[in-house]
Amino acid sequence: MRAPGRRRGSRARRPDDHHRSQQRLSVITVSGEIYHHTGGPLREALSPPDGEAVPQIVVDLSGVTFMDSSGINILIAAYTAARDAGGWLRLAGPT
């Protein structure tokens, strides 16, 4: 029997789930074409300054119409940097 108000399959949250002062969620929305000559702003947006909180990044790609290997490399580098800092990077809306 499940507790009142809980949906089937939902996970009970610990009190500290929403109070992690060393973590920060960023949602970055990207649109248009991402390739060698246009990837700079994306690279900058995905590179938090030194000393920032542990990165938790969601990259919304639903508005991207084209991405070449340069854009994919930017995402891989950002994923690796976030993981190495103890955080994560997730992609939303890839097509």
Score class of each variant (00 low, 15 high):
residue 74 I to A: 05
residue 37 H to I: 09
residue 91 L to H: 10
residue 47 S to L: 15
residue 20 R to H: 12
residue 4 P to D: 06
residue 24 R to M: 08
residue 14 R to K: 12
residue 1 M to W: 09
residue 55 P to Q: 05
residue 63 G to D: 10
residue 14 R to N: 05
residue 40 G to I: 01
residue 54 V to M: 12
residue 86 G to L: 06
residue 45 A to C: 09
residue 23 Q to T: 12
residue 67 M to F: 03
residue 53 A to K: 11
residue 70 S to G: 10
residue 14 R to T: 13
residue 79 Y to A: 10
residue 41 P to E: 05
residue 5 G to S: 06
residue 40 G to Q: 13
residue 47 S to D: 14
residue 81 A to V: 07
residue 94 P to R: 02
residue 56 Q to G: 03
residue 74 I to C: 01
residue 55 P to K: 04
residue 83 R to T: 15
residue 50 D to F: 04
residue 44 E to I: 09
residue 46 L to K: 03
residue 92 A to D: 13
residue 13 R to Q: 11
residue 1 M to N: 06
residue 68 D to A: 07
residue 81 A to E: 07
residue 41 P to M: 04
residue 76 I to A: 11
residue 78 A to H: 08
residue 43 R to E: 09
residue 39 G to F: 01
residue 79 Y to Q: 08
residue 32 G to D: 07
residue 19 H to S: 12
residue 9 G to F: 10
residue 57 I to N: 02
residue 1 M to H: 09
residue 83 R to Y: 09
residue 17 D to P: 01
residue 42 L to T: 03
residue 63 G to T: 10
residue 14 R to W: 08
residue 55 P to I: 05
residue 36 H to K: 07
residue 70 S to Q: 06
residue 82 A to T: 05
residue 37 H to K: 05
residue 26 S to P: 00
residue 39 G to M: 12
residue 8 R to T: 04
residue 72 I to Q: 03
residue 22 Q to P: 02
residue 41 P to A: 09
residue 16 D to E: 15
residue 46 L to G: 02
residue 5 G to R: 07
residue 25 L to N: 04
residue 62 S to F: 05
residue 57 I to T: 15
residue 63 G to I: 08
residue 1 M to P: 13
residue 53 A to P: 10
residue 3 A to F: 11
residue 91 L to C: 08
residue 43 R to C: 01
residue 75 L to N: 06
residue 69 S to L: 06
residue 80 T to V: 12
residue 26 S to G: 03
residue 65 T to S: 14
residue 19 H to I: 03
residue 23 Q to C: 11
residue 6 R to S: 08
residue 27 V to P: 00
residue 65 T to P: 00
residue 85 A to S: 15
residue 95 T to S: 14
residue 64 V to G: 06
residue 75 L to P: 03
residue 83 R to M: 07
residue 21 S to P: 09
residue 56 Q to M: 04
residue 61 L to K: 11
residue 90 R to T: 13
residue 35 Y to Q: 12
residue 1 M to E: 11
residue 22 Q to D: 15
residue 21 S to V: 04
residue 40 G to S: 08
residue 19 H to M: 07
residue 6 R to K: 13
residue 10 S to I: 02
residue 86 G to K: 03
residue 23 Q to N: 03
residue 53 A to F: 01
residue 22 Q to L: 11
residue 57 I to A: 03
residue 15 P to C: 06
residue 14 R to I: 07
residue 27 V to T: 14
residue 33 E to S: 07
residue 10 S to V: 08
residue 67 M to R: 00
residue 30 V to A: 00
residue 78 A to E: 01
residue 60 D to N: 08
residue 31 S to H: 13
residue 33 E to F: 01
residue 19 H to N: 13
residue 24 R to L: 12
residue 49 P to I: 03
residue 85 A to P: 03
residue 80 T to Q: 10
residue 52 E to G: 08
residue 74 I to V: 15
residue 69 S to N: 09
residue 86 G to R: 05
residue 37 H to S: 15
residue 73 N to D: 14
residue 50 D to Q: 15
residue 60 D to R: 00
residue 63 G to N: 03
residue 77 A to P: 00
residue 57 I to Y: 01
residue 53 A to D: 14
residue 74 I to T: 15
residue 37 H to V: 13
residue 57 I to S: 02
